[in-house]
Design a protein around this nucleic acid. Structure first.
Length: 304
DNA sequence: TCGCAGGTAGAAC
DNA sequence: GTTCTACCTGCG
């Protein structure tokens, strides 16, 4: 079954968006389990010309499957309109040819995105991918070798580190302690993750976020432990589809400084303000395209 | 072996 | 309000 919206599936999958790790890659397809109406559904997607071809296994209708895939791969976003926007701005004009078909890769659910994004802070994509995959395998549900992300209570009950697991479980040798957050390589982010779970249990309802304005949602999500401005914007963009977010890290700062400020060093908070002001509803996509344009065009190597 | 890279929290300015 | 430093791990 084909969905007729242009996309570069592989580019979208491997682009390091912190919504969820890339799906498992097979010869010519990607597969993973998503949750649709509280039911696990295994999806297989592949490139067919410029479109997405898919298959699924699970207790939902074809219409529901299409709707989920359209959300996760943001297939209703009008890329042609966006490319016209890019070509009308000299600083951005080259980007669409380097990243043609790149789309947002949105999270299966917001909680997964919050924990994933906390894990991504001050981290490498490689270590981040391994940590999130480990968390899913240890505490998520197994569906034919594909794992869902654990729910809030399950992750809240996870041990923090070897010492805590040794103390509170009946394991007789601390060397055998492997079912704890730090064993997933998340380092000092482990307590942030647990405190975030506690916050979502006691005080903050993530399902309220989509009803808020961007500014209100930003201020709310900033209260989550381990979440600063960069991570908050990633959560709002990849987890809640707020396309006016402009996640600003050191790379975006270098790129924006180069393209717009003659190489002059601008602070990250100023870059965020600039991006939101300048790009409006396109900010999220501009950020995504800037990063991959810099990667592919050689600009990143030059700015290092 | 050690230095470096990457955002946030908390403290100091 | 802005700037400094510690935090954890994998990599070169």
């Amino acid at each position: 079954m084909i969905i007729e919206s242009p996309i570069d599936l592989e580019l979208t999958q491997i682009s390091g968006q912190t919504s969820q790790p890339p799906w498992k890659q097979f010869d010519n397809s990607f597969r993973d389990v998503l949750t649709v109406n509280d039911k696990p559904v295994i999806f297989e997607v592949k490139q067919s010309g410029e479109f997405l071809d898919f298959d699924f296994k699970g207790d939902i209708s074809q219409k529901e499957a299409i709707s989920k895939l359209k959300y996760v791969y943001d297939l209703d976003f009008d890329l042609d309109r966006f490319y016209k926007y890019l070509s009308n701005h000299a600083e951005l004009a080259e980007m669409s040819e380097f990243c043609n078909g790149l789309r947002l890769f949105l999270a299966d659910n917001p909680f997964e995105c919050v924990i994933s994004s906390i894990c991504s802070a001050n981290n490498s994509i490689k270590r981040w991918t391994k940590s999130i995959s480990d968390i899913k395998e240890k505490w998520g549900n197994n569906h034919e070798g594909f794992y869902t992300f654990p729910d809030i209570p399950t992750l809240q009950d996870a041990f923090l580190d070897d010492e805590e697991e040794f103390e509170l479980s009946d394991i007789d040798d601390i060397c055998n302690c492997k079912n704890n957050l730090k064993s997933c390589g998340v380092g000092y982010r482990a307590p942030y993750m647990r405190k975030a779970c506690e916050l979502f249990t006691l005080e903050m309802d993530l399902s309220e976020i989509p009803k808020m304005s961007y500014d209100e949602a930003f201020e709310t999500i900033l209260k989550v432990p381990g979440v600063g401005p960069k991570v908050a914007d990633c959560i709002l963009l990849y987890g809640f589809n707020f396309k006016e977010a402009f996640p600003s890290d050191v790379w975006i700062k270098r790129i924006v400084s180069y393209l717009y400020f003659d190489g002059k060093d601008i602070s990250v908070p100023k870059v965020r303000e600039f991006g939101m002001e300048e790009f409006g509803d396109n900010a999220g996509y501009v950020q995504l395209y800037m990063f991959h344009y810099a990667r592919k065009s050689g600009l990143m190597a030059k700015l290092k």
